[in-house]
Structure formats: structure tokens, C-alpha cells
Design a binder for these strands. Structure first.
Lengths: 196, 196
DNA sequence: GCAAGATTTGCACACCCTGCAAGAAAAGGT
DNA sequence: ACCTTTTCTTGCAGGGTGTGCAAATCTTGC
């Protein structure tokens, strides 16, 4: 077996450190918190903290959840409309247990105070973007690379908006957020086409 | 007079430090370079370095060029198609002397080695995005905020692609890059509309 | 059990970044 | 030209950051 206990512990420690970071940041303010405080709160040594995250910003943002292999296959081999299959891809991604609504909510709230956090959140989205670009090139093999690059950015823009709405807890259901955002996106495309 | 000599010197020093940073990074690799090395190369003290930039990444990326007031007015009050007016906005922005093609080229090249640089470049684009969102809300007063948010992200995506193409020196003219990218964008919108 | 490999930890050390205060330089008024 | 105000530069002190290394501890596969 490929180290079940070990990998579970690793992920748990990563989550513990992230939770400790967000807890301290909520309590004292992000800038005041030091790696030493986080390590103490998470009950690990400072050195271990740095084995998990490169810095406290990364600890606040947490690990990057990637698309699952199943979700990718479902999209690439999907037969529905682009709109519907994208909606399904986003939904299945955001339902993953790795995507922690509370943590995202705290992180976005903190990023008002510490813009560096937003940068790291964007880094996560950039990782997802390269996934999306690769997936799209399989789904739309006829399309040239630069157009796919633009499309992948647009898809990630929609994902970002859906996540932000969802994390803000204005909408309880992630599916609703995804659908509403994609609806806005298609309306926008219609607008652009009409005004041309 | 509002300190002409002083502000010119300030901008010159900022540029000197950026140039020193990029020169050293090209020569030795970005990670190896320290703020002390940069300060020595730019012939200022380390403390002065930190008066200009928060860290070496920021020094490599340089200061954020914003849209000029004239360009903003021209767009808001523009009477042409959205496409054409956007193209003009991007062109006049990228023609500014603050936007240094060589520096952008070096910075993007270095960001292969140091992903943190790309984050800061994205930060610049995020600043521009909030400008774009505000400008668009004047141009399209009927549109709701979330749709404008999406649109501003799409506009910035196009700007990013145009800048990257231009900085890569595959295309000599920034206008050509902007036009080609916007053309791809409208084609994409048509594609989305048709497949719905 | 036991050997191989992974994880935690302390320690040392260089680097990062900031507050402070003194001194140099420029701006503006007289 | 002189003086005042404002801005910029610099050194220094000091705490926070992040990494290499090696020893100790724990898991895993056999």
C-alpha cells in the first residue's frame, strides 16, 4: 500500500497548520502573526512549519486543490454543450473535500488586510488555468493555442467569481453560483457579438 | 512648481534600481541575487533600496503604470464600438513611456525561474482590472456589477496576452498584438454563442 | 524484527525588512 | 544670498524569515 497513514497524517498536519494560521490571523491580525506563533498554535516546531509551507501567506491559503482525474476525463469526453460540461467540471471540483469553504472565506476576508494573500490565491487559480488550457486543447483540438489561452483565462475568471460568491455565503449552493456566473458569461458573449 | 527635479530623480532612481535588478538577475540568476547586491549595483544603500521597493521581486517588476486620465476619458466618452474603443485604450496605455518593453520581456523571462515574479505581474494587472471595472461601469451603466466584473477580467486577460506577445518580440508592433488578440476574443464569443 | 525511507526537530547562519534619528539635498519664501 | 521647511539618503539595531545539516523518531515493506 502506498503509505495511507502517512499521507493522511501529512494532509492533516497541513490542514492543522492552515487552521492555526487563520485562527491567529482572525484574532490578532495577519501582519502581527509570526511563523513562530503559528508553529506554537499548531503544536509543531517552526522548522516543521517550513516543511509544509514556504511562508505564512502560503499557510493561510493552504494547498492547491487540483481537478480530479475523473472530472477531467468527464469533461474531455463530454458530449454536452461546452456550457453544461464546464458547469459540471466546476461543480465537481468545488465539491471536493479539499476545497474548504470556511478557509476560503477567511482567506478572502484576510486578503483585504494583506494583499499578498490574494496573490497566492491567484497563483492557485493560475495552476488550475494551465490544467484548463490542457483540458480544453483536448476538447477543442481544432482551436489555436492563443485562443485556447484566452478561453482558459475566461473560464478561470468565471470560476473565481463563482468561488467568491460562494465563499461570501450569500449563496448557499455552489451549483447556483456556478450556473449564475456562467449565465452572465454567455450573456456577455452575446452582448459582444451583437455590438460588433 | 511641484518639484520637477525631485520627481524626475525619484523616477530615475526607481528605474536604475529596476535595471540593476534585471541585470544582476540575468547574470547570476534571480534567486542568487540579494538586496545588498542590487543596492551596490544601483549605487545606493540597502536602506534606500527598501525606500523604493518592498522586496527584490517588486524591484524586478517595477512600478505599476496606470491608465492615463486622457485615455480613460476617451474610452468612457467614446462613441465607437466597444471593440474599437478597447483597442484604443490598450494601445494608448502600452505606448506610454512607463511601459518598458525590454523590462517586461526580461521580467517574463525571469518568471520562469522565479514564479513569484509572475504573481507581482498579476498584481499589476489586478490594479488595472479595478480601473477597467470602474471605467466600464461608466461606459455601460445599465450592466450589473457581477457582469462588469467578468468583463473586466476578460479585458485584462486580453491585455495580458497582447503584452506577452509584444514583449516576446515575435510581433514588433503593439497595435498588431492588441488587434489580433481582440480578434481572437470576439471569435471566441461567437463560438460560445453558436454552441449554446 | 529489521532495513529502508520519511518526518520531526534543534541549531546555526545568512538574508529580509523596518523604525529611528542624523545628516544631506532641494524647494520656496524673504 | 539666507533661512526654513520638506524630502531623501543612510547607518544601525533588532526581530522575523527561510534553508542546510545532522540526529532522533516513526512507518513501511519485507
Amino acid at each position: 500500500m502506498v503509505s495511507s497513514l502517512r499521507s493522511r497524517r501529512r494532509r492533516q498536519t497541513a490542514r492543522d497548520i492552515q487552521a492555526a494560521t487563520l485562527r491567529l490571523a482572525r484574532r490578532h491580525g495577519f501582519d502581527v502573526v509570526t511563523t513562530g506563533m503559528i508553529a506554537a498554535e499548531a503544536q509543531v516546531s517552526v522548522r516543521t512549519f517550513f516543511n509544509y509551507y514556504a511562508n505564512k501567506e502560503a499557510a493561510a491559503v493552504g494547498e492547491t486543490p487540483e481537478f480530479s482525474d475523473e472530472a477531467i476525463c468527464a469533461f474531455v469526453e463530454g458530449t454536452g454543450s461546452l456550457h453544461d460540461d464546464l458547469a459540471r467540471l466546476m461543480r465537481t471540483h468545488l465539491i471536493q473535500e479539499d476545497v474548504n469553504r470556511g478557509a476560503i472565506h477567511d482567506m478572502i476576508a484576510l486578503s483585504e488586510e494583506a494583499p499578498r494573500l490574494m496573490s497566492l490565491f491567484e497563483d492557485h487559480l493560475r495552476v488550475l488555468r494551465s490544467s484548463v488550457a490542457s483540458i480544453l486543447s483536448h476538447r477543442l483540438p481544432e482551436t489555436d493555442a492563443l485562443t485556447l489561452d484566452l478561453l482558459s483565462q475566461i473560464v478561470i475568471a468565471a470560476l473565481r467569481q463563482a468561488v467568491q460568491l460562494w465563499a461570501a455565503q450569500d449563496e448557499k449552493d455552489i451549483g447556483t453560483c456556478v450556473d449564475a456566473t456562467l449565465e452572465r458569461l454567455t450573456a456577455l458573449c452575446r452582448l459582444v457579438c451583437e455590438t460588433e
